[in-house]
Protein backbone atom coordinates (compact mmCIF):
# COMPACT_ATOMS: atom_id res chain seq x y z
CA UNK A 1 0.00 0.00 0.00
CA UNK A 2 3.02 2.34 -0.06
CA UNK A 3 1.82 3.55 -3.46
CA UNK A 4 -0.91 5.65 -1.85
CA UNK A 5 -0.21 9.35 -2.22
CA UNK A 6 -1.56 10.73 1.03
CA UNK A 7 -1.80 14.40 2.03
CA UNK A 8 -2.40 15.30 5.68
CA UNK A 9 -3.80 18.78 6.39
CA UNK A 10 -4.05 19.95 9.99
CA UNK A 11 -2.89 23.02 11.92
CA UNK A 12 -2.22 20.88 15.03
CA UNK A 13 1.43 20.27 14.17
CA UNK A 14 2.25 17.76 16.94
CA UNK A 15 -0.80 15.74 16.12
CA UNK A 16 -0.35 15.64 12.38
CA UNK A 17 3.40 14.91 12.53
CA UNK A 18 2.83 11.99 14.90
CA UNK A 19 0.01 10.75 12.70
CA UNK A 20 2.30 10.92 9.66
CA UNK A 21 5.01 8.96 11.49
CA UNK A 22 2.56 6.24 12.47
CA UNK A 23 1.17 6.06 8.94
CA UNK A 24 4.73 5.68 7.62
CA UNK A 25 5.33 2.80 10.04
CA UNK A 26 2.32 1.15 8.40
CA UNK A 27 3.82 1.60 4.92
CA UNK A 28 1.75 4.64 4.03
CA UNK A 29 4.11 7.62 3.81
CA UNK A 30 2.47 11.01 3.52
CA UNK A 31 3.02 14.68 2.89
CA UNK A 32 2.08 17.03 5.71
CA UNK A 33 0.86 20.62 5.47
CA UNK A 34 -0.42 22.85 8.26
CA UNK A 35 -3.00 25.09 6.60
CA UNK A 36 -5.73 25.23 4.01
CA UNK A 37 -3.64 27.54 1.82
CA UNK A 38 -0.70 25.11 1.90
CA UNK A 39 -3.05 22.25 1.00
CA UNK A 40 -4.25 24.07 -2.12
CA UNK A 41 -0.63 24.91 -3.03
CA UNK A 42 0.38 21.26 -2.58
CA UNK A 43 -2.26 20.21 -5.11
CA UNK A 44 -0.59 22.38 -7.74
CA UNK A 45 2.63 20.39 -7.52
CA UNK A 46 1.07 16.94 -7.47
CA UNK A 47 -2.33 15.38 -6.91
CA UNK A 48 -2.68 13.07 -3.91
CA UNK A 49 -4.93 10.01 -4.03
CA UNK A 50 -6.33 10.71 -0.59
CA UNK A 51 -6.41 13.79 1.60
CA UNK A 52 -7.06 13.78 5.35
CA UNK A 53 -8.43 17.21 6.17
CA UNK A 54 -9.15 19.04 9.41
CA UNK A 55 -12.13 21.39 9.38
CA UNK A 56 -11.27 24.19 11.77
CA UNK A 57 -8.06 25.91 10.71
CA UNK A 58 -6.99 29.53 10.64
CA UNK A 59 -7.23 31.17 7.21
CA UNK A 60 -8.96 29.00 4.62
CA UNK A 61 -10.85 26.44 6.68
CA UNK A 62 -11.32 22.77 5.84
CA UNK A 63 -14.83 23.17 4.45
CA UNK A 64 -13.58 25.77 1.96
CA UNK A 65 -10.64 23.53 0.98
CA UNK A 66 -13.08 20.65 0.47
CA UNK A 67 -15.30 22.83 -1.72
CA UNK A 68 -12.36 24.03 -3.85
CA UNK A 69 -10.70 20.65 -4.25
CA UNK A 70 -13.97 19.01 -5.27
CA UNK A 71 -14.14 21.57 -8.10
CA UNK A 72 -10.51 21.45 -9.23
CA UNK A 73 -9.50 17.84 -8.43
CA UNK A 74 -12.77 15.88 -8.13
CA UNK A 75 -11.14 12.43 -8.12
CA UNK A 76 -9.13 13.13 -4.95
CA UNK A 77 -10.79 11.30 -2.06
CA UNK A 78 -11.13 13.56 0.96
CA UNK A 79 -11.50 12.24 4.50
CA UNK A 80 -12.56 14.80 7.10
CA UNK A 81 -10.89 14.37 10.50
CA UNK A 82 -12.06 16.96 12.98
CA UNK A 83 -12.36 17.65 16.67
CA UNK A 84 -15.30 19.95 16.04
CA UNK A 85 -17.83 17.51 14.75
CA UNK A 86 -21.38 18.79 14.70
CA UNK A 87 -24.09 16.93 12.81
CA UNK A 88 -24.51 19.98 10.59
CA UNK A 89 -20.79 19.98 9.72
CA UNK A 90 -20.97 16.30 8.83
CA UNK A 91 -24.06 16.83 6.70
CA UNK A 92 -22.43 19.72 4.84
CA UNK A 93 -19.14 17.84 4.32
CA UNK A 94 -20.95 14.82 2.91
CA UNK A 95 -23.06 17.07 0.66
CA UNK A 96 -19.87 18.65 -0.66
CA UNK A 97 -18.54 15.19 -1.50
CA UNK A 98 -16.29 14.16 1.42
CA UNK A 99 -15.48 10.44 1.17
CA UNK A 100 -15.75 9.92 4.92
CA UNK A 101 -16.15 11.93 8.11
CA UNK A 102 -14.23 10.98 11.26
CA UNK A 103 -14.13 12.66 14.65
CA UNK A 104 -10.93 13.09 16.67
CA UNK A 105 -9.53 11.26 18.50
CA UNK A 106 -9.53 8.19 16.28
CA UNK A 107 -7.79 4.84 16.34
CA UNK A 108 -4.97 4.73 13.76
CA UNK A 109 -6.06 1.40 12.29
CA UNK A 110 -9.61 2.64 11.79
CA UNK A 111 -8.30 5.72 10.00
CA UNK A 112 -5.89 3.62 7.94
CA UNK A 113 -8.79 1.37 6.95
CA UNK A 114 -10.69 4.40 5.63
CA UNK A 115 -7.61 5.63 3.74
CA UNK A 116 -7.21 2.24 2.03
CA UNK A 117 -10.90 2.12 1.19
CA UNK A 118 -10.71 5.63 -0.29
CA UNK A 119 -7.65 4.68 -2.35
CA UNK A 120 -9.32 1.52 -3.68
CA UNK A 121 -12.41 3.53 -4.58
CA UNK A 122 -10.32 6.02 -6.57
CA UNK A 123 -8.37 3.24 -8.29
CA UNK A 124 -11.54 1.37 -9.24
CA UNK A 125 -12.96 4.49 -10.86
CA UNK A 126 -9.67 5.11 -12.70
CA UNK A 127 -9.64 1.53 -14.04
CA UNK A 128 -13.25 1.76 -15.23
CA UNK A 129 -12.53 5.07 -16.99
CA UNK A 130 -9.40 3.62 -18.62
CA UNK A 131 -11.27 0.51 -19.81
CA UNK A 132 -14.15 2.54 -21.22
CA UNK A 133 -11.79 4.94 -22.99
CA UNK A 134 -9.88 2.01 -24.49
CA UNK A 135 -13.14 0.71 -25.93
CA UNK A 136 -13.80 4.17 -27.35
CA UNK A 137 -16.81 4.75 -25.07
CA UNK A 138 -15.77 8.24 -24.06
CA UNK A 139 -19.26 9.30 -23.05
CA UNK A 140 -19.54 6.59 -20.39
CA UNK A 141 -16.01 7.37 -19.27
CA UNK A 142 -17.00 11.02 -18.90
CA UNK A 143 -20.08 9.98 -16.88
CA UNK A 144 -17.94 8.02 -14.43
CA UNK A 145 -15.68 11.05 -14.00
CA UNK A 146 -18.69 13.33 -13.54
CA UNK A 147 -20.01 11.07 -10.78
CA UNK A 148 -16.94 12.03 -8.77
CA UNK A 149 -17.90 15.70 -8.92
Amino acid sequence: MNKIKLLLVDDEENFVNTLAERMKMRDVPSKVVYSGEAALDALKTGEPDVMILDLRMPGIDGMEVLRKVRQTNPTVRIIILTGHGTDLDEEEARKLGAFHYHKKPIDIDELLGTVKKAYRDRMEDAMVVAALAEEGDFESARQVLDEDK
Partner: peptide
Protein backbone atom coordinates in the same frame (compact mmCIF):
# COMPACT_ATOMS: atom_id res chain seq x y z
CA UNK B 1 -10.65 16.86 21.31
CA UNK B 2 -7.47 18.12 19.64
CA UNK B 3 -5.50 17.65 22.88
CA UNK B 4 -6.89 14.14 23.31
CA UNK B 5 -6.11 13.29 19.69
CA UNK B 6 -2.47 14.36 20.14
CA UNK B 7 -2.11 12.38 23.39
CA UNK B 8 -3.70 9.36 21.73
CA UNK B 9 -1.36 9.45 18.72
Amino acid sequence: CNVLATIQQ
